[in-house]
């Protein structure tokens, strides 16, 4: 060390090894190429942009005095419908996801085939967006809250099931072994061994998902899923921008209230 310094040849320090540096440079290059490709080929119609500022101002001018008189007869029932859609959808999703998560959890189901089937259900339900599910269910059941509720439920299965399965796999084996040693039936092991350990995670996941579902169900009506989205769609189609403003304010308020409510539930129960 001292010899090197006295020889006037300072040591070179490098944070990453050569392959790491090559990988990183390749990655940055890839990002730059992807961005340039996207920017060069994406279709943006410049004629639309000339009047964008006026259009934006126009949007808010038309929304301004918000049409509150519309609230009691149309928006309030829609709001209630949205809340019920989100809540029922979450309950249904929790019920189905509980079963699927038992299939996925490797410490409960020791069959790789069943694990894989469960995992596929979780990935498939999660990757298709609630809005796309709503398009499906509207085609099946007709427009309305039933389609929205099912869309919310099916889309939530993947999310709830994934986290629930992780919570079950994290359960400590001690109490389980104790119960098995007393000769408890599998159902009793599940209820008295796993459930108390999984319960906090279960409640946290369910309330968190409910919060997300309130947001989602507020827009499902745009494709026919009922609730506030339907009111928004009607107002947009009629170009009643003062009513659009009202619906947007209501959606904003309900999202904030749901977030505060779930934060309060989480801090008081858990």
């Amino acid at each position: 060390m001292t010899a090197e310094i006295s020889a006037g040849r300072p040591r070179q320090w490098q944070r990453f090894s050569l392959p790491e540096r090559i990988m990183r440079s390749a990655f940055y290059l890839l990002v730059v190429i992807a961005v340039i490709w996207s920017l060069r080929t994406i279709e943006i119609i410049p004629e639309f942009l000339y009047d964008a500022p006026q259009q934006t101002v126009d949007l808010f001018v038309r929304m301004w005095p918000i049409d509150w008189s519309w609230y009691p007869k149309v928006v309030h029932p829609a709001l209630m419908e949205t809340l019920h859609t989100a809540t029922l959808g979450t309950i249904l999703a929790v019920a189905v996801a509980s079963v699927v998560s038992l299939m996925v959890a490797r410490n409960i189901t020791r069959s790789i085939i069943v694990n894989t089937i469960g995992r596929f259900i979780l990935v498939a339900t999660r990757s298709v967006h609630a809005m796309v599910w709503a398009l499906f269910f509207v085609a099946l059941f007709g427009p309305g809250a039933l389609a929205g509720m099912l869309a919310i439920a099916v889309h939530s299965i993947g999310f709830i099931g994934k986290f629930l399965a992780e919570a079950i796999e994290d359960a400590k084996p001690g109490p389980i072994e104790a119960l098995v040693a007393t000769g408890a039936s599998p159902l009793a092991v599940l209820i008295k061994g796993y459930w108390p350990q999984v319960k906090p995670a279960f409640l946290a996941i369910a309330t968190f998902r409910w919060d997300i579902n309130v947001r989602e169900s507020a827009v499902l009506g745009l494709v026919g899923g009922g609730g506030l989205g339907m009111a928004l769609d009607t107002a947009l189609n009629n170009l009643y921008w003062d009513q659009v403003g009202l619906v947007l304010v209501v959606i904003f308020a309900v999202v904030i209230v749901a977030e505060i409510a779930t934060a309060w539930i989480r801090s008081s129960i858990l």
Partner: peptide, 16 residues
Amino acid sequence: VIVAILFVKSVGFGAL
């Protein structure tokens, strides 16, 4: 989706 609706009004239909 709601943000997209507002932007469709201000910059028109399409990718932007």
